[in-house]
Design a protein around this nucleic acid. Structure first.
Ligand SMILES: [Mn+2]
Ligand SMILES: [Mn+2]
Ligand SMILES: [Zn+2]
Ligand SMILES: [Zn+2]
Lengths: 143, 143
DNA sequence: GTTGTTATTGATATTCATTATCAGTATAAT
DNA sequence: ATTATACTGATAATGAATATCAATAACAAC
Protein backbone atom coordinates (compact mmCIF):
# COMPACT_ATOMS: atom_id res chain seq x y z
CA UNK A 1 0.00 0.00 0.00
CA UNK A 2 1.31 3.43 -0.93
CA UNK A 3 0.04 6.55 0.75
CA UNK A 4 -1.30 9.02 -1.78
CA UNK A 5 0.88 11.86 -0.52
CA UNK A 6 4.27 10.20 -0.84
CA UNK A 7 4.87 12.00 -4.08
CA UNK A 8 3.93 15.29 -2.51
CA UNK A 9 6.40 14.69 0.27
CA UNK A 10 9.10 14.23 -2.35
CA UNK A 11 8.08 17.31 -4.31
CA UNK A 12 7.93 19.32 -1.08
CA UNK A 13 11.41 18.15 -0.14
CA UNK A 14 12.74 19.12 -3.57
CA UNK A 15 11.21 22.57 -3.34
CA UNK A 16 12.32 23.12 0.26
CA UNK A 17 15.91 22.43 -0.71
CA UNK A 18 15.76 24.91 -3.57
CA UNK A 19 15.94 22.11 -6.10
CA UNK A 20 13.94 21.93 -9.28
CA UNK A 21 11.11 19.84 -10.62
CA UNK A 22 11.93 17.73 -13.66
CA UNK A 23 10.06 15.10 -15.60
CA UNK A 24 12.89 12.70 -14.74
CA UNK A 25 12.24 13.12 -11.02
CA UNK A 26 8.55 12.62 -11.62
CA UNK A 27 9.14 9.44 -13.56
CA UNK A 28 11.53 8.07 -10.97
CA UNK A 29 9.38 8.73 -7.91
CA UNK A 30 6.33 7.32 -9.67
CA UNK A 31 8.16 4.18 -10.72
CA UNK A 32 9.67 3.72 -7.28
CA UNK A 33 6.39 4.09 -5.43
CA UNK A 34 4.44 1.78 -7.69
CA UNK A 35 7.12 -0.92 -8.00
CA UNK A 36 7.59 -3.83 -5.65
CA UNK A 37 9.99 -3.04 -2.83
CA UNK A 38 13.58 -4.17 -2.24
CA UNK A 39 14.81 -2.87 -5.61
CA UNK A 40 18.36 -2.11 -6.65
CA UNK A 41 19.23 1.06 -8.55
CA UNK A 42 19.82 -1.14 -11.57
CA UNK A 43 16.35 -2.68 -11.31
CA UNK A 44 14.61 0.67 -10.94
CA UNK A 45 16.70 1.98 -13.83
CA UNK A 46 15.41 -0.84 -16.03
CA UNK A 47 11.81 -0.04 -15.10
CA UNK A 48 12.26 3.67 -15.71
CA UNK A 49 14.03 3.03 -19.01
CA UNK A 50 10.98 1.19 -20.28
CA UNK A 51 8.87 4.29 -19.62
CA UNK A 52 11.41 6.85 -20.79
CA UNK A 53 14.34 5.43 -22.77
CA UNK A 54 17.37 7.66 -22.58
CA UNK A 55 17.09 8.51 -18.91
CA UNK A 56 20.51 8.21 -17.28
CA UNK A 57 21.57 5.63 -14.72
CA UNK A 58 23.25 8.36 -12.68
CA UNK A 59 20.01 10.32 -12.62
CA UNK A 60 18.09 7.35 -11.22
CA UNK A 61 20.84 6.80 -8.67
CA UNK A 62 20.96 10.44 -7.59
CA UNK A 63 17.22 10.71 -7.23
CA UNK A 64 16.92 7.46 -5.34
CA UNK A 65 19.32 8.97 -2.87
CA UNK A 66 17.11 12.04 -2.62
CA UNK A 67 14.10 9.79 -2.04
CA UNK A 68 16.02 8.15 0.77
CA UNK A 69 17.11 11.50 2.19
CA UNK A 70 13.54 12.70 2.56
CA UNK A 71 12.59 9.52 4.39
CA UNK A 72 10.59 7.82 1.65
CA UNK A 73 13.02 4.93 1.25
CA UNK A 74 15.09 2.67 3.44
CA UNK A 75 18.37 1.14 2.36
CA UNK A 76 18.97 -2.59 2.60
CA UNK A 77 22.57 -3.74 2.40
CA UNK A 78 23.24 -7.47 2.31
CA UNK A 79 26.89 -8.47 2.26
CA UNK A 80 28.58 -7.21 -0.88
CA UNK A 81 25.42 -7.18 -2.92
CA UNK A 82 24.02 -4.06 -4.52
CA UNK A 83 22.17 -1.75 -2.19
CA UNK A 84 18.41 -2.21 -2.29
CA UNK A 85 15.75 0.39 -1.58
CA UNK A 86 12.26 -0.08 -0.22
CA UNK A 87 9.46 2.46 0.13
CA UNK A 88 8.66 3.48 3.69
CA UNK A 89 5.69 5.73 3.17
CA UNK A 90 2.45 4.24 4.46
CA UNK A 91 4.34 1.29 5.84
CA UNK A 92 5.41 0.54 9.37
CA UNK A 93 8.86 -0.49 10.53
CA UNK A 94 9.67 -4.11 9.93
CA UNK A 95 12.60 -6.49 9.94
CA UNK A 96 13.51 -9.12 7.37
CA UNK A 97 13.90 -12.84 7.07
CA UNK A 98 16.20 -13.25 4.08
CA UNK A 99 16.42 -16.51 2.18
CA UNK A 100 20.01 -17.36 1.26
CA UNK A 101 18.85 -19.49 -1.66
CA UNK A 102 16.09 -17.63 -3.51
CA UNK A 103 16.98 -14.24 -2.03
CA UNK A 104 13.38 -13.53 -1.08
CA UNK A 105 12.50 -11.13 1.73
CA UNK A 106 9.90 -11.97 4.36
CA UNK A 107 8.79 -8.94 6.30
CA UNK A 108 8.21 -9.46 10.00
CA UNK A 109 7.56 -7.42 13.07
CA UNK A 110 7.54 -8.26 16.73
CA UNK A 111 6.77 -5.67 19.34
CA UNK A 112 8.43 -7.63 22.10
CA UNK A 113 11.71 -7.68 20.24
CA UNK A 114 11.45 -3.98 19.55
CA UNK A 115 10.83 -3.27 23.22
CA UNK A 116 13.65 -5.51 24.37
CA UNK A 117 15.98 -3.65 22.05
CA UNK A 118 14.99 -0.39 23.67
CA UNK A 119 15.74 -1.82 27.08
CA UNK A 120 19.03 -3.25 25.90
CA UNK A 121 20.10 0.17 24.71
CA UNK A 122 18.90 1.85 27.88
CA UNK A 123 20.82 -0.62 30.04
CA UNK A 124 23.98 0.48 28.24
CA UNK A 125 23.34 4.22 28.41
CA UNK A 126 22.94 4.08 24.67
CA UNK A 127 20.58 6.29 22.69
CA UNK A 128 19.09 4.09 19.96
CA UNK A 129 18.25 5.86 16.71
CA UNK A 130 17.68 3.01 14.31
CA UNK A 131 18.35 -0.68 14.09
CA UNK A 132 18.66 -3.52 11.70
CA UNK A 133 17.53 -7.07 12.40
CA UNK A 134 18.08 -9.53 9.63
CA UNK A 135 17.64 -13.27 9.97
CA UNK A 136 19.34 -15.27 7.22
CA UNK A 137 18.30 -18.79 6.40
CA UNK A 138 16.01 -20.78 4.13
CA UNK A 139 12.43 -19.90 3.31
CA UNK A 140 9.49 -22.29 3.21
CA UNK A 141 10.10 -23.13 -0.44
CA UNK A 142 13.84 -23.54 -0.14
CA UNK A 143 14.39 -25.34 3.14
CA UNK B 1 39.83 -13.64 26.17
CA UNK B 2 41.26 -15.89 23.54
CA UNK B 3 41.12 -19.64 23.77
CA UNK B 4 44.57 -21.21 23.65
CA UNK B 5 43.66 -23.58 20.82
CA UNK B 6 42.44 -21.03 18.31
CA UNK B 7 45.75 -21.12 16.57
CA UNK B 8 45.65 -24.90 16.44
CA UNK B 9 42.22 -24.79 14.86
CA UNK B 10 43.64 -22.55 12.16
CA UNK B 11 46.68 -24.73 11.57
CA UNK B 12 44.48 -27.80 11.49
CA UNK B 13 42.21 -26.17 8.92
CA UNK B 14 45.21 -25.25 6.78
CA UNK B 15 46.56 -28.78 6.89
CA UNK B 16 43.17 -30.40 6.29
CA UNK B 17 42.74 -28.37 3.12
CA UNK B 18 46.17 -29.42 1.85
CA UNK B 19 47.48 -25.91 2.31
CA UNK B 20 50.90 -25.03 3.68
CA UNK B 21 52.27 -23.49 6.81
CA UNK B 22 54.09 -20.21 6.34
CA UNK B 23 55.56 -17.67 8.74
CA UNK B 24 53.18 -15.11 7.20
CA UNK B 25 50.16 -17.19 8.25
CA UNK B 26 51.66 -17.57 11.70
CA UNK B 27 52.22 -13.87 12.04
CA UNK B 28 48.73 -13.01 10.81
CA UNK B 29 46.83 -15.47 13.03
CA UNK B 30 48.88 -14.39 16.05
CA UNK B 31 48.27 -10.72 15.41
CA UNK B 32 44.58 -11.28 14.78
CA UNK B 33 44.02 -13.29 17.93
CA UNK B 34 45.90 -10.93 20.22
CA UNK B 35 44.54 -7.69 18.74
CA UNK B 36 41.35 -5.98 19.83
CA UNK B 37 38.35 -7.10 17.82
CA UNK B 38 36.41 -5.32 15.09
CA UNK B 39 39.48 -4.75 12.91
CA UNK B 40 39.58 -3.97 9.21
CA UNK B 41 42.04 -5.72 6.89
CA UNK B 42 43.88 -2.42 6.68
CA UNK B 43 44.20 -2.19 10.46
CA UNK B 44 45.45 -5.74 10.82
CA UNK B 45 47.83 -5.11 7.94
CA UNK B 46 49.31 -2.14 9.82
CA UNK B 47 49.81 -4.26 12.94
CA UNK B 48 51.39 -7.11 11.00
CA UNK B 49 53.63 -4.72 9.09
CA UNK B 50 55.13 -3.47 12.35
CA UNK B 51 56.14 -7.04 13.19
CA UNK B 52 57.24 -8.07 9.71
CA UNK B 53 57.68 -5.19 7.26
CA UNK B 54 57.30 -6.32 3.69
CA UNK B 55 54.35 -8.62 4.23
CA UNK B 56 51.76 -8.01 1.53
CA UNK B 57 48.33 -6.51 1.96
CA UNK B 58 46.86 -9.22 -0.26
CA UNK B 59 48.38 -11.88 1.96
CA UNK B 60 46.74 -10.42 5.05
CA UNK B 61 43.47 -10.17 3.19
CA UNK B 62 43.60 -13.73 1.89
CA UNK B 63 44.49 -15.20 5.24
CA UNK B 64 41.86 -13.20 7.08
CA UNK B 65 39.38 -14.83 4.73
CA UNK B 66 40.81 -18.25 5.64
CA UNK B 67 40.46 -17.37 9.32
CA UNK B 68 36.83 -16.51 8.69
CA UNK B 69 36.29 -19.68 6.65
CA UNK B 70 37.40 -21.91 9.51
CA UNK B 71 35.02 -20.15 11.88
CA UNK B 72 37.54 -18.16 13.88
CA UNK B 73 36.28 -14.78 12.70
CA UNK B 74 32.96 -13.09 12.06
CA UNK B 75 32.47 -10.37 9.49
CA UNK B 76 30.91 -7.04 10.40
CA UNK B 77 29.66 -4.89 7.56
CA UNK B 78 28.40 -1.42 8.39
CA UNK B 79 27.04 0.59 5.48
CA UNK B 80 29.75 1.28 2.94
CA UNK B 81 32.58 1.07 5.43
CA UNK B 82 35.37 -1.46 5.16
CA UNK B 83 34.52 -4.94 6.37
CA UNK B 84 35.62 -5.61 9.94
CA UNK B 85 36.57 -8.92 11.48
CA UNK B 86 36.25 -10.06 15.06
CA UNK B 87 37.56 -13.23 16.71
CA UNK B 88 34.91 -15.75 17.64
CA UNK B 89 36.97 -18.38 19.40
CA UNK B 90 36.24 -18.57 23.10
CA UNK B 91 33.52 -15.99 22.72
CA UNK B 92 29.76 -16.41 22.63
CA UNK B 93 27.36 -14.96 20.08
CA UNK B 94 26.57 -11.33 20.65
CA UNK B 95 24.97 -8.38 18.92
CA UNK B 96 26.21 -4.82 18.66
CA UNK B 97 25.23 -1.33 19.71
CA UNK B 98 27.14 0.88 17.29
CA UNK B 99 27.83 4.53 18.02
CA UNK B 100 27.33 6.70 14.95
CA UNK B 101 29.68 9.37 16.33
CA UNK B 102 32.73 7.63 17.80
CA UNK B 103 32.17 4.36 15.93
CA UNK B 104 32.58 2.28 19.08
CA UNK B 105 31.01 -1.16 19.41
CA UNK B 106 29.15 -2.22 22.54
CA UNK B 107 28.64 -5.96 22.70
CA UNK B 108 25.31 -7.12 24.02
CA UNK B 109 23.34 -10.29 24.35
CA UNK B 110 19.77 -10.99 25.29
CA UNK B 111 18.42 -14.50 25.44
CA UNK B 112 14.84 -13.35 25.18
CA UNK B 113 15.53 -11.59 21.90
CA UNK B 114 17.36 -14.63 20.57
CA UNK B 115 14.43 -16.88 21.47
CA UNK B 116 11.87 -14.52 19.98
CA UNK B 117 13.85 -14.53 16.76
CA UNK B 118 13.65 -18.32 16.67
CA UNK B 119 9.90 -18.15 17.13
CA UNK B 120 9.55 -15.45 14.49
CA UNK B 121 11.35 -17.65 11.99
CA UNK B 122 9.35 -20.70 12.95
CA UNK B 123 6.07 -18.81 12.55
CA UNK B 124 7.08 -18.10 8.96
CA UNK B 125 8.23 -21.62 8.12
CA UNK B 126 11.70 -20.18 7.89
CA UNK B 127 14.87 -22.05 8.85
CA UNK B 128 17.12 -19.52 10.58
CA UNK B 129 20.85 -20.06 10.11
CA UNK B 130 22.34 -16.83 11.34
CA UNK B 131 21.23 -13.33 12.13
CA UNK B 132 22.45 -9.82 12.55
CA UNK B 133 21.09 -7.36 15.07
CA UNK B 134 22.69 -3.95 15.07
CA UNK B 135 21.37 -0.97 16.97
CA UNK B 136 22.75 2.36 15.75
CA UNK B 137 22.75 5.43 17.93
CA UNK B 138 24.89 7.38 20.39
CA UNK B 139 26.95 5.86 23.15
CA UNK B 140 27.18 7.10 26.72
CA UNK B 141 30.06 9.44 25.88
CA UNK B 142 28.55 10.79 22.69
CA UNK B 143 24.88 11.23 23.43
C1' DG C 1 70.06 -33.51 1.51
C1' DT C 2 68.32 -33.21 -3.17
C1' DT C 3 64.61 -32.99 -6.24
C1' DG C 4 60.14 -32.03 -8.01
C1' DT C 5 55.58 -30.54 -7.40
C1' DT C 6 52.71 -27.04 -6.36
C1' DA C 7 50.85 -23.80 -2.88
C1' DT C 8 52.10 -19.07 -1.44
C1' DT C 9 53.57 -14.62 -1.67
C1' DG C 10 53.66 -9.77 -2.96
C1' DA C 11 53.18 -6.55 -6.55
C1' DT C 12 50.02 -5.23 -9.54
C1' DA C 13 45.84 -5.38 -12.34
C1' DT C 14 40.99 -6.04 -12.50
C1' DT C 15 36.33 -5.82 -11.10
C1' DC C 16 32.32 -3.64 -9.75
C1' DA C 17 29.28 -0.60 -7.11
C1' DT C 18 29.08 3.94 -6.10
C1' DT C 19 30.17 8.72 -6.49
C1' DA C 20 32.18 12.76 -8.81
C1' DT C 21 32.92 15.64 -12.94
C1' DC C 22 31.45 18.58 -16.48
C1' DA C 23 29.57 20.63 -20.68
C1' DG C 24 25.21 21.26 -22.48
C1' DT C 25 20.39 21.87 -21.27
C1' DA C 26 16.26 22.84 -18.63
C1' DT C 27 13.98 25.15 -14.92
C1' DA C 28 11.95 28.92 -12.66
C1' DA C 29 12.23 33.44 -10.80
C1' DT C 30 12.28 38.24 -12.29
C1' DA D 1 12.67 37.23 -22.66
C1' DT D 2 16.47 37.23 -19.71
C1' DT D 3 19.32 35.30 -16.35
C1' DA D 4 21.16 32.49 -12.75
C1' DT D 5 21.89 28.09 -11.63
C1' DA D 6 20.21 23.40 -10.86
C1' DC D 7 19.85 19.14 -13.63
C1' DT D 8 20.92 15.65 -16.83
C1' DG D 9 23.51 12.06 -19.00
C1' DA D 10 27.85 10.40 -20.51
C1' DT D 11 31.91 9.35 -18.71
C1' DA D 12 35.67 9.36 -15.37
C1' DA D 13 37.18 8.60 -10.76
C1' DT D 14 37.08 6.23 -6.48
C1' DG D 15 37.82 2.57 -3.40
C1' DA D 16 37.20 -1.96 -1.43
C1' DA D 17 37.56 -6.60 -2.66
C1' DT D 18 39.35 -10.00 -5.58
C1' DA D 19 42.12 -11.96 -9.42
C1' DT D 20 46.48 -12.59 -11.86
C1' DC D 21 51.08 -14.12 -12.26
C1' DA D 22 56.08 -14.75 -11.99
C1' DA D 23 59.21 -15.74 -8.41
C1' DT D 24 59.66 -18.16 -4.25
C1' DA D 25 58.98 -21.33 -0.51
C1' DA D 26 56.97 -25.51 1.54
C1' DC D 27 57.09 -30.26 1.86
C1' DA D 28 56.61 -34.94 0.34
C1' DA D 29 59.21 -38.50 -1.95
C1' DC D 30 63.38 -40.41 -2.74
MN1 LIG E 1 10.92 -4.83 3.53
MN1 LIG F 1 31.80 -7.83 18.73
ZN1 LIG G 1 13.96 -19.11 -0.56
ZN1 LIG H 1 30.25 7.12 20.79
Amino acid sequence: MITPNAKEIFRGYIKAKGLRHTWQRDTIIDAFLSAAGHLTVEELFQIVTRIHPGIGYATVHRNLNLIRECGLADEIKIGNEKTRFEPTCGRTHHDHLICLKCKCFIEVNNNQIEQLQERLAEANDFLPLRHKLEIYGLCKNCR
